[in-house]
């Protein structure tokens, strides 16, 4: 899972903690706080969600929010103050197109990790993660290829559909993996 984390807090201590928590949970983090980072071929479109830290939404923060909403991505706003007077945030919460994607939460240093883990878990369960949109190139031996061609014809299914079903069933029946998933987003 890839997260874009944007912070405009002058004090970078909390921001660095957020990055640590996310990385420890297995997420890939791209952030304006990380001065030397290799994003390779990644682009904003491939990011799964946006996390914004800061009580002030500056021009760059607004840009990332608008971009994330245009791509139907989840956003977590982390506020240090209980009440926000931001017109933008109020609008976002009230807009029926966005309110299921926008999460606005006031954090304390002692519950920050749990907020992040809950958010990651929510992302993991999002129906968007069931979408078949990752291209995968697989090299097969001629024997396996022959079997796959025969199986597809015999069962009248597409090779890719049959493979996907097989992997899904294996995943669901794998006890060790299911245990790993249960622990994945729990505070360590």
């Amino acid at each position: 899972m890839t997260i874009y984390f944007y912070s405009n807090e002058k004090n970078q201590t909390i921001g660095k903690e957020v990055i640590q928590y996310l990385k420890r949970s297995g997420a890939m983090v791209i952030s304006n706080l990380l001065t030397s980072q290799s994003t390779g071929d990644l682009s904003l479109e491939e990011v799964d969600a946006l996390i914004i830290l800061g009580d002030e939404l500056d021009a760059n923060g607004s840009y990332f929010v608008a971009w994330a909403l245009s791509q139907n991505k989840h956003i977590l706003f982390l506020l240090s103050k209980q009440t926000s007077t931001s017109q933008t945030l109020q609008t976002l919460q009230q807009n029926k197109n966005f309110n299921d994607k926008v999460n606005i939460i006031t954090y304390h240093p002692d519950n920050l990790q749990q907020i992040l883990l809950d958010f990651l878990q929510k992302l993991d369960q999002d129906s968007g993660r069931d979408a078949v949109n990752i291209k995968y190139t697989l090299r097969l031996s001629p024997k396996i290829s022959d079997f796959l061609a025969w199986k597809a014809k015999h069962d009248n299914v597409r090779k890719a559909d049959w493979l996907r079903k097989l992997i899904t069933e294996t995943m669901q029946n794998d006890q060790a993996y299911q245990q790993f998933l249960n622990k994945k987003y729990k505070a360590q």
């Binding site: 607004s62 971009w67 245009s70 609008t91």
Partner: peptide, 8 residues
């Protein structure tokens, strides 16, 4: 349909 523009 592009209400996110109003954020900017």
């Amino acid at each position: 349909s592009m209400s996110e523009l109003s954020i900017l």
